[in-house]
Design a protein around this nucleic acid. Structure first.
Length: 773
DNA sequence: ATGGAGACCTTTTTT
DNA sequence: AGGTCTCCAT
C-alpha cells in the first residue's frame, strides 16, 4: 500500500521502534505529550500493512472517546474497510459484545441488560429497605463501592462472605450486613437478566476461567492485543488481558505511570510497574520527547512529579521554545477567580485574535464550574461544560430508555419499577409493594405477577388488576415488533402510545425535557440510517448479509456511552470547561487550572495516605501537561462550599513548582506566603494588566443579553415560513440564523446557528421559532 | 394515590 | 446552593 512509508516516516526513533515491534510483549512508557496515540494508531496501521488479519487484532481503551479517536485515525491511515474489521473499543463495550454472544453459558440471555450506576444504587436502596436496615448507615454509594471493588478484584458474594478480613472491616465500620446485601444484589441481578458495569469484566473472567473452549476461541481470534492507558487497568481487566494473550504473548501496552489517576476505581498502578515481571521477555520503550508543551511547562511538570515516590524513572524533555512562564494568581473569592479567568480569556481573544477553542478551564470537582460559567456568560464568551449530568442519565431519557429495556427484557426489574407508573396509570406504591411480596412468596419475578395477576392470586382490586394487565399487554405488543420495526419507528410508537410525549406536553415548564426526548428520537433516526459499524458477525467472523437496525441494537450501541460522544452540540469555537480527569488525553493552547487550594486540590478526602496524595499530585501533573503554550494557575482565599463560605490555604503543590518557571511580575506572592490583595486592588490590577474593557462595557453586554430576553414577542411561525438564512428567535436559545433545512412535512428540521449557544438542530413542529419583526 | 413542603445531603474522579 | 428524598396533608 502506498501509505507504507508515510506510516513510519512521521515518527521519531523510539516511536518507530515501538510501531515495528509486532511479535512478543511490548511496554511503551509514554510521557505526557510524547505521541502515545500516534504510536498506537500507527502501530495498528503498520500491522495491517504487514498483512496481519485485521480480525485478529484487539485494541482496548479506557474511554469511548479514546476508542473513537483511535478508530478515526486508523481509518485515515489505512482506509475504512481494513480498519473496521479491527476490534477497537473500551474494555466494557468489547466484553459486553462477547458476553452477549456467550450469555447462555453464564445463565444469562442474549438480551442481558446493563445496569448503570443509578440502576445499581436504586436496586441497593430497595434491598436495604427490604432488609429493614438503616439507609443512612447503609448508603447506596458506600455499599456499591464495596461491591464494586470486590468485583473488580474478582470476588463474588460467596468469596466476600468467606473472607474474614473483609467481614471484619465491614463490622468495624458498623455495616456487618454488606455481605448479605451483596448476595441479594447479585441474585436480583441474575433474576433480572442484568449485569452492572463491574459484572461485565467479572463475568468475562468467568467465561475465560470456566469454559476452555471459549478461552481457546478468543485466544485464537485475538492474536494481537493492544491496551491503551494500561496504568488504569484494575485486576479484572488485567486478568482478562493476561488470559487472552497467554498463548501468543503478542501484547502491546501503552501507558504512563505518572498519569495514573483512577485508583479510586480499582485501577492498580502495580499492573504497569510489574509488567516486566509478568512478561520477562518484554521489550520496553520509553517515549520521553514531549511535542506538546513549552519548556517552562514541561520543566514545571517534571519538578512536581519528582515529589512522588512510586514511579518508573524517565526524563521528559522538549525541543520546543522556552515559552512564557506560568502565571499564578490568587484572588479573594471563587467568583473573583472566575472573573479573572473570564477577563483573561476576553483579553487574549482581543489581543491575539485567537478563538475560544484555544482555551480550557480545568478544575478538580464539577461543582467548580458554576462560578466560571457565570463569569463567562457575563463576558459573552461561548463555552461548553463537559461531564456533569450526562445526556443518558437525565430523568426523562432514562424513563424512555427504561421502556426500551423492558420491551427487550421483561425481567429488567429496575426498568419495570421505573415505568410501571410513569406516566401515571394508577399503579401506585401500595400495588408495587404487593407485587414484590407476591413475587417473593411465589419465588417468581415481578414481571410474572404483572403479566398474570390472577394466577398468583395478587391481592388488588379489579381496576388495578386490569391496569396491570393492560400495561403488560402493551409492553408485550411492542416486543413482538422488535424484529420487524426499526429502532426509530418502534421507539417513536412507544413514546407516543405510552403517553410520555403527552405527559411532557402537559407541563409547559418541561420543554427542555421534551426537547431531550426529541433529541433522543433524532439520534435513533440517525442510527437507523447509518451504515452498520461492522458487517462482521462477531461470533463467527462471517460477513453479515442482512443488517437490521433494531431497538435492541440501538440500546446496545448507547448503554455504555456517557454524554460526550453522542452529543450533537457543536463543540467548535467554545471554551472548554471540564475536570482534570476528563481532560486526560486532551491538549489546549491556553489552560487555566482553577482552585489550587488545600482540601480542594489535593482533595481533603485524599490526605489519608501517601498513595492517595501521590495520586492527587499525578492529577496535578496531568493538569499542567494539558497546556501547549501557556498555563495559568489560580486559587482563591475564600470559596463557597456546601453553601457556606470557607477560607482556603494555597495548595501545597504550588510550592513544588520552582520559582524560575513562574511569572514574577504577575505573581501575587513572596516565597511561600502569598499575600492577599483587597478586592479593589485585585480589580484594578487585573483590569489594567490584562487590558480589559471598562466596567461599563460589561454592563452594556449584560444589557444586550437582557434585551434579547425581553424581545421574545410575536407569534410562532408556521413550519413553511421558515427559510434558509432567515433570522429567527427561539425561547431558550435566543437569536440565530437558519443554516439548513432538513426533511419535509411534520418532521422538518432546521439547523440554526444561534448567536450565543452555537448550532442546534430543531424539530420545527416543536421549536416554535419566531420571525422577528 | 398524588403533590407539596421541608429535611437532608452533597462534592472527587467514570465505565 | 441546589437537587433529592421523605413525610404529611389532601
Amino acid at each position: 500500500m502506498s501509505n507504507f512509508n508515510s506510516i513510519l516516516q512521521s515518527l521519531n526513533d523510539p516511536q518507530r521502534e515501538a510501531v515495528q515491534h509486532i511479535d512478543g510483549p511490548l511496554m511503551v512508557i509514554a510521557g505526557a505529550g510524547s505521541g502515545k496515540t500516534r504510536v498506537l494508531t500507527h502501530r495498528v496501521a503498520y500491522m495491517l500493512e504487514q498483512k496481519i488479519n485485521p480480525y485478529s487484532i484487539l485494541a482496548l481503551t479506557f474511554t469511548n472517546k479514546a476508542a473513537k479517536e483511535m478508530k478515526e485515525r486508523v481509518v485515515q491511515l489505512v482506509g475504512d474497510s481494513l480498519a473496521k474489521a479491527v476490534m477497537m473499543g473500551t474494555f466494557h463495550s468489547v466484553f459486553y459484545k462477547i458476553i452477549r454472544i456467550e450469555a447462555e453459558k453464564l445463565g444469562f440471555t442474549r438480551n442481558v441488560t446493563v445496569y448503570d450506576t443509578d440502576d445499581s444504587k436504586s436496586l441497593i436502596r430497595n434491598i436495604v429497605k427490604e432488609m429493614d436496615l438503616d439507609p443512612k448507615i447503609y448508603s447506596a454509594s458506600i455499599i456499591l463501592n464495596r461491591i464494586s471493588s470486590a468485583k473488580s478484584n474478582l470476588l463474588n458474594h460467596e468469596d466476600y462472605a468467606a473472607n474474614p478480613e473483609i467481614l471484619a472491616m465491614d463490622g468495624d465500620s458498623g455495616r456487618p450486613f454488606i455481605s448479605d446485601i451483596f448476595m441479594r444484589y447479585n441474585i436480583r441481578l441474575k433474576q433480572s437478566d442484568a449485569m452492572d458495569f463491574d459484572d461485565l469484566l467479572y463475568w468475562m473472567n468467568v467465561l475465560l476461567r470456566d469454559f476452555p473452549d471459549v478461552l481457546y476461541k478468543y485466544q485464537q481470534r485475538f492474536q494481537y492485543v493492544l491496551v491503551d492507558e494500561y496504568q488504569d487497568t484494575n485486576f479484572a481487566q488485567y486478568m482478562i488481558v493476561k488470559k487472552l494473550v497467554a498463548v501468543y504473548r503478542n501484547l502491546c501496552i501503552v501507558g504512563d505511570d505518572a498519569q495514573s489517576i483512577y485508583s479510586f476505581r480499582g485501577a492498580n498502578i502495580q499492573n504497569i510497574l510489574n509488567f516486566k515481571r509478568d512478561y520477562p521477555e518484554a521489550k520496553i520503550i520509553k517515549l520521553e520527547q514531549n511535542y506538546r508543551s513549552t519548556q517552562n511547562i514541561v520543566n514545571a511538570a517534571n519538578a512536581v512529579i519528582k515529589n512522588n515516590k512510586d514511579q518508573v524513572y524517565k526524563e521528559v524533555w522538549t525541543d520546543n521554545d522556552e515559552g512564557q512562564k506560568i502565571n499564578l494568581f490568587q484572588t479573594n473569592s471563587d467568583s473573583d477567580e472566575a472573573q479573572l479567568i473570564s477577563n483573561t480569556i476576553f483579553e487574549y481573544k482581543q489581543n491575539y485574535h485567537v478563538s475560544n477553542d484555544y482555551f480550557a478551564v480545568l478544575y478538580r470537582t464539577n461543582a467548580q464550574s458554576r462560578a466560571i460559567e457565570e463569569a463567562l456568560i457575563k463576558r459573552n464568551i461561548a463555552y461548553v461544560v463537559y461531564g456533569g449530568t450526562s445526556f443518558y442519565s437525565r430523568k426523562e431519557i432514562k424513563d424512555v430508555l427504561a421502556y426500551f429495556r423492558l420491551v427487550i427484557n421483561h425481567y429488567d426489574e429496575e426498568a419495570l419499577r421505573r415505568v410501571i407508573n410513569y406516566p401515571q396509570r394508577g399503579i401506585g406504591a401500595t400495588t408495587v409493594e404487593r407485587l414484590i411480596v407476591a413475587a417473593n412468596q411465589n419465588k417468581v419475578r415481578i414481571w410474572d405477577i404483572v403479566s398474570n395477576p390472577q394466577q398468583y392470586n395478587l391481592q388488588v382490586n379489579k381496576p388495578t388488576q386490569e391496569r396491570l394487565q393492560n400495561f403488560a399487554i402493551k409492553i408485550k405488543s411492542f416486543s413482538t415488533q422488535l424484529t420487524t420495526v426499526d429502532a426509530y419507528e418502534l421507539g417513536l410508537s412507544i413514546v407516543k402510545s405510552v403517553g410520555i410525549i403527552q405527559d411532557l406536553n402537559q407541563d409547559k415548564s418541561d420543554q427542555d425535557r421534551k426537547q431531550n426526548v426529541e433529541e433522543l428520537l433524532d439520534s435513533m433516526k440517525l442510527f437507523t440510517e447509518k451504515e452498520p459499524e461492522s458487517l462482521f458477525n462477531e461470533a463467527t467472523g462471517e460477513i453479515v448479509e442482512e443488517y437490521f437496525p433494531s431497538l435492541d441494537q440501538f440500546l446496545e450501541s448507547i448503554v455504555l456511552l456517557t454524554s460526550e460522544e453522542e452529543k450533537k452540540e457543536d463543540l467548535t469555537d467554545k471554551v472548554k470547561l471540564m475536570t482534570i480527569h476528563s481532560a486526560k488525553g486532551l491538549e489546549f493552547e491556553y489552560v487555566f487550572l482553577a482552585g489550587l487550594e488545600e482540601n480542594l486540590f489535593p482533595s481533603s478526602l485524599s490526605l489519608g495516605s501517601r498513595q492517595e496524595l501521590e495520586e492527587e499530585r499525578r492529577l496535578f501533573y496531568v493538569g499542567i501537561t494539558r497546556a501547549k503554550k501557556l498555563l495559568t494557575i489560580t486559587h482563591a482565599a475564600t470559596r463557597y462550599r456546601f453553601g457556606s463560605l470557607q477560607f482556603c490555604e494555597p495548595s501545597r503543590f504550588l510550592a513544588e513548582i520552582p520559582m524560575r518557571y513562574i511569572n514574577h511580575t504577575q505573581k501575587a506572592s513572596m516565597g511561600k506566603g502569598l499575600f492577599y490583595r483587597s478586592r479593589g486592588e485585585m480589580e484594578t490590577q487585573s483590569r489594567q494588566s490584562f487590558g480589559c474593557p471598562p466596567i461599563n462595557q460589561i454592563e452594556k453586554n449584560k444589557k444586550i443579553i437582557t434585551e434579547r430576553k425581553m424581545e421574545a414577542v410575536g407569534e410562532p411561525a408556521q413550519i413553511d415560513e421558515i427559510q434558509v438564512n432567515m433570522r429567527v428567535y427561539h425561547d431558550k436559545f435566543g437569536y440565530g440564523v437558519v443554516n439548513q433545512l432538513v426533511g419535509d412535512g411534520a418532521d422538518k428540521k432546521a439547523i440554526v446557528l444561534f448567536d450565543t449557544v452555537g448550532s442546534k438542530t430543531l424539530m420545527l413542529k416543536f421549536a416554535k421559532l419566531i420571525i422577528p419583526k
